[in-house]
């Protein structure tokens, strides 16, 4: 893979949604496929309910941080967080977002407002080619538990045509990185997410 073909992934969510875990699953699978991969995570204070961003670069890059307007894939586990990804969105970025809002305490205190998600989607739709909202929480519930919503989104990402890592390696990596008793449920969530996105594409 030449430098220009390196694949940049930007994952954003709220503390506790599994952004780091999702990225680690992708990263280890990429390594197993023989690809070079680097990843950047956030730990510490931000984890307590704050925004968490994890970034990956698969291919030739040395730095995991996505360049401006150059992300190949954005996974947003919370829809309003899309507003924080504006610096990495390019015209051809594939964007997959969960449609379920997580409203922070600042909104109940009245010191912050929750934006209109429809507006965000409409404005994004004018400029980007591949944007899909997925009801990840509903699918996750069907798969067995709402906490698998991140894996539903990961499944959807695997169905994007350019995704560089093979699905069976992602499943293998998932088995290595999640608790043994939750594996079946997570694989189900992954497959359902994959199916959901495949249906959208067809």
């Amino acid at each position: 893979m030449s430098y220009k073909k390196s694949y940049q992934i930007y994952i954003i969510g709220v503390g506790g949604q599994g952004t780091i875990k999702t990225a680690t699953i992708i990263g280890e699978a990429a390594m197993a496929q023989g690809l070079n991969v680097v990843m950047s995570e956030v730990h510490g204070m931000a984890q307590r309910g704050g925004t968490v961003v994890t970034e990956l670069k698969i291919g030739k890059g040395l730095s995991p941080l996505n360049e401006n307007y150059s992300a190949d894939l954005i996974l947003a586990f919370e829809p309003s967080e899309l507003l924080r990804t504006i610096t990495v969105i390019g015209k051809n970025t594939n964007i997959i977002a969960s449609c379920s809002a997580i409203i922070p305490f600042t909104v109940s205190l009245g010191i912050s407002k929750y934006p209109d998600i429809n507006q965000i989607i409409e404005r994004l739709g004018k400029k980007v080619n591949n944007l899909h909202l997925i009801d990840a929480e509903r699918i996750a519930k069907e798969a067995g538990n709402i906490i698998t919503a991140n894996i539903v989104i990961l499944g959807a990402a695997l169905a994007t045509p350019q995704f560089p890592v093979k699905k069976d390696l992602i499943i293998e990596s998932l088995k290595q990185n999640l608790p043994a008793r939750s594996i079946d449920m997570n694989i189900k969530a992954l497959e359902m997410g994959y199916q959901e996105y495949s249906n959208i594409l067809n």
Binding site: V14, G15, M45, A46, Q47, R48, G49, G50, T51, Y69, S80, E81, L83, R84, I86, I89, G90, K91, I103, P104, F105, T106, V107, I111, S112, K113, Y114, P115, D116, Q119, I120, R123, L124, K126, K127, V128
Partner: peptide, 16 residues
Amino acid sequence: PGIDFSGLTPPMRPPV
């Protein structure tokens, strides 16, 4: 790509 997010701001999510 010139995305116009004017008037839209994400809610503050300080650690809590």
